[in-house]
Nucleic acid binder design. Structure first.
Length: 333
DNA sequence: CCGATTTGACCAAC
DNA sequence: GTTGGTCAAATCGG
């Protein structure tokens, strides 16, 4: 708190930022050099790959920092200073004003919001609806162009009491073998999950988790049993602690100590993609038709910052195999 | 009665 | 002008 004035935050972090930026530039230069034909394909490919990873890491780190700066600064700014935080900070428009609720005159800016094209999202496609353990409240439904089914909008029930900004959209994408696309936005910062880890709905087989390979993002590291009030579901605890170490103080700080490169990749993606959130218990199961998606829920995760200069985008589609995921998991700048 | 859902309106981004 | 995301009044339901 003391040193946390916005100015200080920017001051300290700018140094880190600049260092990272320099590092990225250096790596980029190295890459340019290596691009010159060297003869040995394999080694140059390997080196190039390595450099690509370095660049990806730098880019993400930069993005993270920017994101955090933005976040922290906004957190410290009273919600009125022009920061039009659309939803999370709750308050609606100017209700403080007498807001002479003249319906037509002022309208209270109904429907006002910022389209979040720059916010992180995580999309899952599953054969059935999933229950991620969080309490959601539907706040809208909309028919989408060229879509057979309407899209449903949900926000965290604790949006107002705890300021939890998490929202999700659920849309049925297929009819026959029913498929649902669920897109999560924002992260849960609320702590009370109402439900136990129940995770998936339809299905049975509790022990089936092995099948549910899915893509437990980094779950490899999850303290497998975070025995605490938090259900064990692998939400993104990762970042949650990272960014808002507010909640769940007891959780071990997961994987920071571990250093598998792949783990780090996921961690990075998680960090940037979700501060916490918990969308993913994923387990599908579909006991009956083993088909599927179970092992292949499809995920796509995107993240970007508000900073134009350092935005990045991640997309990952997991189709059954983690390795596939890793492969797909290339940074796209 | 109170919280959740429905649904039309509103508005920013395309 | 169109589309998608959100709001909030009306309605529903426990």
């Amino acid at each position: 708190m003391d040193s946390s004035s916005p100015e200080n935050l920017f001051g300290d972090r700018n140094k880190v930022l600049q260092g990272l930026i320099r590092g990225r530039e250096s790596a980029n230069q190295l890459r340019l050099i290596l691009e010159k034909p060297l003869g040995d394909d394999k080694s140059s490919v390997a080196v190039d790959d390595l450099v690509t990873k370095i660049l990806g890491s730098f880019t993400e780190s930069i993005s993270i920092l920017n994101w955090r700066q933005i976040k922290e600064v906004f957190d410290k700014i009273p919600a009125n200073t022009g920061g039009n935080s659309p939803s999370s900070n709750g308050r609606k428009y100017d209700e403080s004003e007498e807001s002479s609720k003249s319906t037509s005159a002022f309208k209270e800016r109904r429907g006002c919001y910022k389209r979040r094209k720059t916010i992180q999202t995580l999309t899952k496609i599953t054969p059935n609806l999933i229950d991620d353990g969080h309490a959601w409240r539907k706040y809208g439904q909309k028919t989408i162009l060229n879509a057979k089914h309407p899209r449903n909008y949900y926000r965290c029930t604790h949006k107002f009491d705890q300021g939890c900004p998490a929202t999700k959209q659920v849309q049925k994408t297929e009819e026959d073998p029913p498929m649902y696309q669920t897109t999560y936005h924002g992260n849960h910062i609320c702590r009370n999950l109402h439900k136990p880890p129940q995770i998936i709905l339809d299905s049975t087989i509790p022990g089936d988790s092995s099948n549910s390979v899915f893509l437990n993002f980094g779950s490899t590291n999850y303290p497998s049993s975070k025995s605490n009030d938090e259900p064990n579901y692998p939400n993104y605890p990762l970042v949650k602690q990272e960014y808002f170490q507010t909640q769940e103080p007891m959780k071990p700080s997961f994987n920071h100590n571990q250093t598998t490169s792949s783990d780090q990749l996921f961690l990075l993606s998680d960090l940037t993609a979700f501060d916490s959130a918990g969308p993913m218990p994923v387990l599908s199961s579909e006991s009956d038709h083993g088909d599927v998606i179970s092992s292949s829920g499809v995920y796509s995760c995107t993240a970007s910052t508000h900073d134009d200069s350092h935005s990045f985008h991640l997309d990952m589609m997991a189709v059954g195999d983690f390795d596939d995921v890793l492969q797909e998991f290339n940074f796209q700048n």
